[in-house]
Amino acid sequence: MKDAIEVQLIDTNIYKSKELWQPYRARGAFGGQSLHAYFLLAGNVDRPIIYTVERMRDGKSYATRMVKASQRGKTIFVCNCSFSTLEEGITLSHQVTMPTVANPESLPSDLDIFQKILRSTKSESKQFLLRAEKNINDNSLIDYRAVNQYSNEEIITGNVKTDAHGRRWFKTRGALNDDMKLHACIIAYASDSGLINVAATANGLSYNSESMGMMASLDHTMWFHAPARADDWLLYDIHSPRTNHGRGVAFGKIYSSDGTLVVTTAQEGIVRLTEAEQKKRRKQLEFENGFLGNCRCQL
């Protein structure tokens, strides 16, 4: 995990990725006090990424940096980062309460679920079988455990009960050193996974549904409230208030296992139906509108 997020200094304010890793379902390379990032193009894991850092401001309490990632001369990612020193003295403090959910040790991991379904279900969906095998074979660096459990049929079809909320535990699969900057980077890395999917489940679908044509992050924002270890269990509490015009927005709160709110996130992403599903729903709307029109005429 450490190698996947480390960079190598190659010149003043210019860095190169050391190792890139592409999880299953990702379009490309995956991947303080606050940050706001825009995903512009998919990264190619077979080529190094060059990161250029612009030092926007260095104040007494806050520093601001703008990072641009590029491949083959094209900008694929930009990010504004704000860093702050620890505030001294008496400060105001409050937080929302962490929801009460099942203990992560009592929940199966995502990989455990796919393995169980493959053993117990004779699915005729070649698409699901392919996805399940790739999920299992994917050497995932993060252990994700969903609090919202779906039935085998829902997982296979991707057609799920409508729910605009999602909760999952996560942590690294191995122990890390005590460098808290490393832990913050890994939490940032993991926070992108599953966030925009809740915008789809709010509509009764998940990434696995054959009705979904495209799901991809457009931008991603994080506010770091307190340090936390990425190799200890963290609860990700997500909700999506809106999907429209092929896009969805989701907000998340990440808690350490002792209930401390350590990170808040926000993301907008593409949540687009397939052309076939759009055509099907368009015909259904035309039928319903025509039926209602005929009813009004008769009245």
Rank of each mutant, 00 (worst) to 15 (best):
Ile186Gly: 02
Asn159Val: 15
Gly166Thr: 13
Met212Phe: 11
Trp169Asp: 01
Ser211Ala: 14
Ala202Met: 10
Pro241Gln: 10
Ala175Tyr: 13
His239Phe: 15
Lys161Cys: 14
Thr157Gln: 04
Ile254Arg: 00
Ala190Thr: 06
Ala188Phe: 07
Thr243Leu: 09
Gly194Gln: 07
Ala202His: 06
Lys171Leu: 08
Ser191Ile: 00
Arg167Gly: 08
Ser191His: 05
Gly194Lys: 04
Cys185Asn: 12
Tyr207Thr: 13
Lys171Trp: 09
Ser209Gly: 07
Arg242Trp: 14
Phe170Gly: 04
Gly248Leu: 03
Arg247Met: 07
Phe170Arg: 02
Leu218His: 04
Tyr255Leu: 02
Ile186Arg: 05
His165Lys: 14
Ile196Phe: 02
Ile155Tyr: 04
Leu234Gln: 07
Arg247Cys: 05
Ser217Ile: 07
Ser217Phe: 04
Val198Met: 06
Asn203Ile: 10
Val249Cys: 05
Gly174Glu: 15
Arg167Val: 08
Ala164Trp: 08
His225Asn: 12
Met214Val: 12
Cys185Thr: 12
His183Val: 01
Asn203Leu: 11
Lys171His: 10
Ala216Glu: 08
Ser257Met: 14
Met214Glu: 13
Ala250Cys: 04
Asn203Lys: 15
Met212Leu: 12
Asp178Val: 05
Arg229Ser: 11
Asp258Gly: 10
Asp219Arg: 02
Asp258Thr: 12
Gly246Cys: 00
Asn177His: 10
Ile238Asp: 00
Leu218Ile: 09
Asp179Ile: 00
Tyr207Asp: 14
Tyr189Val: 01
Ala175Glu: 15
Pro241Asp: 09
Asn208Lys: 11
Glu154Gly: 07
Gly259Pro: 06
Asp232Leu: 14
Ile254Trp: 01
Ala216Thr: 08
Val198Tyr: 00
Tyr236Arg: 07
Asp219Thr: 06
Gly194Glu: 06
His245Arg: 15
Arg173Phe: 11
Ser256Pro: 08
Ala175Met: 13
Val160Cys: 09
Ser217Cys: 08
Gly248Lys: 05
Thr162Trp: 11
Ser240Trp: 01
Glu210Gln: 13
Phe224Trp: 01
Ala250Lys: 03
Ile187Asp: 00
Ser257Asn: 14
Lys181Gln: 14
Glu154Ser: 09
Leu182Tyr: 09
Ala199Ser: 07
Ser211Arg: 14
Val160Asn: 05
Ala228Pro: 02
Asp258Val: 12
Ser256Lys: 11
Ala190His: 04
Ser256Met: 10
Asp179Ser: 07
Ala188Leu: 06
Asp192Pro: 01
Arg168Glu: 14
Pro241Arg: 11
Met180Phe: 13
Ala228Ser: 06
Ala226Val: 13
Ala188Ser: 12
Tyr236Asn: 05
Trp223Ile: 09
Ala175Gly: 13
Met222Ala: 07
His220Gly: 02
Ile187His: 04
His220Pro: 01
Ser240Cys: 04
Lys181Ile: 11
Arg173Lys: 13
Phe170Tyr: 07
Asp179Cys: 06
Gly194Asp: 06
Thr201Ser: 10
His165Cys: 13
Ala228Trp: 01
Ile196His: 03
Ala200Cys: 12
Gly252Met: 05
Leu182Gln: 08
Asp232Lys: 12
Ala202Gln: 05
Trp169Ile: 02
Leu218Arg: 00
Thr157Asp: 00
Asn197Ala: 12
Trp233Leu: 00
Gly174Gln: 15
Leu235Cys: 04
Arg229Gly: 09
Asp232Ala: 14
